[in-house]
Design a protein around this nucleic acid. Structure first.
Lengths: 225, 225
DNA sequence: ATTTTGTGTGATATAGATGTAACATTAGTT
DNA sequence: AACTAATGTTACATCTATATCACACAAAAT
């Protein structure tokens, strides 16, 4: 379950920018174009893990939204402020925001601060929930796999298959087992389906593909050589 | 691979407390803050070995989550109940929980009960599922054989043959016996097939091959010299 | 609607496992 | 020592499991 983030900004470009970066990082984004929308969305989605508010917004400004949310929730809040506005900064902390970031900002720094706040608030989760096996790294939160740092695009099935095999590292898994756990218990598929997906995984994982070993007559197993 | 435990409790403090203690004990912890999250997490992680549910949770309460999980899994479930609630206890067993622990509880007792339930359910497992004979080691779970630590690749038949002989250590096994048990009762083959496979085994096992001894006129036996 | 992406299945190719037979060697017998 | 039967060893034809490819279809994105 990805963490949900609410981004409220009247500038569409900014919303899209922020949403794109954070989506890539594995968060589910909700967008609001003004203060009222922001509050409404927050009320309707109890499971929002982080709120990002632009100060300048129609209907209710960022501080007002912040205070409204604070009345009912301890959710971490990041304020986006324009440059060099001392009073705003103070004001931001007063109204209960956890951080403020001045525009313009670099996406990477922005993302890093979001991660950090997530981590501070919810524990490891946002980042470090990753499994490292040799050159292979599974970023669980983000559903992303890297090999020696290179991002590998995997489909749902491929990801699930890889994860299941890693979770059962060093154990030989029969095709039936894999079909049951990755495709579902009631799934009607042939063994060849598994083979094909194993093949695709191996190709996509490149050198790390060799971690998936064939156990002739039994099935496959994942093991770092 | 560590055993995975899902802890579901709406109180963050409680989640952290439990997670910390069990992490130290070597378990991998997954956390859910409400009933829905708990169910979602469980669905997404087929490899959860134990579930701990607080009774009082938003969205779905512990009993409901318990029943939902029970519909698809026999995973051991521990319920955390408030003190002195007889009906809850009964209810807990009805909904399929394996144990219930009343809050507040002492961490050490808690941990002990988790360990006990793990052991009861999964046995010793991670260790000791191997047979050691001299330099030879059969890792049953992994279907793997090692000689002095070196991995030996065996085919199905070879593995089955070796295992059968080891299971009947020091007994002379006729070729017919071996054909019956390793190849199957209805198998139509000549005695010489056994010889060939014995030969292959001896070669693959290298020095440990000498554990397979010929009993001229009778058959073969496995014995560590 | 069109393109792209994911998925499952079958066909074919390849590699590995198996059984048999031929030949070599050994152990036991005379 | 010579013979014989059992076993060891090797080679090879056959079979089987897996790898790989190609394609049809479905789902998703554009």
């Amino acid at each position: 379950m990805n963490k949900k983030i609410l981004i409220a900004d009247d500038e569409k470009r900014m919303r899209i920018l922020v949403s794109d970066f954070l989506s890539i990082e594995g968060y589910d984004m909700l967008e609001a174009a003004d203060g009222k929308q922001a509050i409404d969305l927050f009320m309707k989605n109890p499971q929002i893990h982080l709120v990002i508010l632009d100060v300048m917004m129609p209907l209710y400004n960022g501080w007002e939204v912040c205070q409204a949310i604070r009345k009912i929730s301890e959710v971490p809040i990041i304020m986006l402020t324009a440059k060099n506005k001392e009073p705003d900064e103070l004001n931001g902390f007063d109204s209960g925001a956890d951080e403020y970031i001045t525009k313009p900002f670099s996406p990477s720094i922005f993302v890093a601060r979001v991660h950090a706040l997530m981590k501070r608030t919810y524990g490891l989760q946002s980042e470090s929930k990753e499994i490292i096996k040799g050159d292979l790294c599974i970023h669980l939160m983000q559903h992303r796999v890297t090999v020696s740092g290179d991002i590998i695009e995997l489909s749902q099935t491929e990801y699930a298959l890889l994860l299941y095999m890693i979770q059962n590292e060093s154990q030989v898994l029969s095709r039936d087992q894999l079909l049951d756990h990755v495709w579902g218990y009631d799934y009607q598929g042939t063994d060849r389906t598994v083979d094909t997906h194993i093949n695709r995984l191996r190709i996509k994982l490149r050198k790390s593909g060799s971690y998936i070993q064939t156990q002739r007559g039994y099935g496959y197993k994942f093991e770092v050589t």
